[in-house]
């Protein structure tokens, strides 16, 4: 999977979990750009991504991501 595939899947998952089909992500998006991205929703997003990509994030990996690009790269690395 390339960056774009993963980005699209992350966007789709996020739209579902945050119950907002209008969310548009680019690699520079971060939590402060998306109002639904609260700390509680963050946990649900992480669990949903773990199910979607069949991966598991270690403690510390997703607690302070700077932007979506970091998340996408982490998923690609985990999926290999």
């Amino acid at each position: 999977m390339n960056t774009n595939d993963v980005l699209n899947k992350v966007q789709e998952t996020m739209r579902g979990v945050f119950e907002n089909p209008q969310i548009n992500l680019n690699l520079q998006s971060s939590a402060k750009d998306i109002s639904e991205w609260t700390s509680l929703n963050h946990i649900n997003l992480i669990v949903a991504l773990e199910h979607t990509f069949n991966i598991r994030f270690d403690l510390g990996e997703v607690e302070d991501l700077a932007n979506i690009e970091e998340l996408v790269h982490l998923i690609i690395e985990k999926s290999q």
Binding site: E12, V17, E19, N44, H51, T52
Partner: peptide, 10 residues
Amino acid sequence: NLSTIMTKRA
């Protein structure tokens, strides 16, 4: 189906 529950809840 937990994926469906989480992403299609609405």
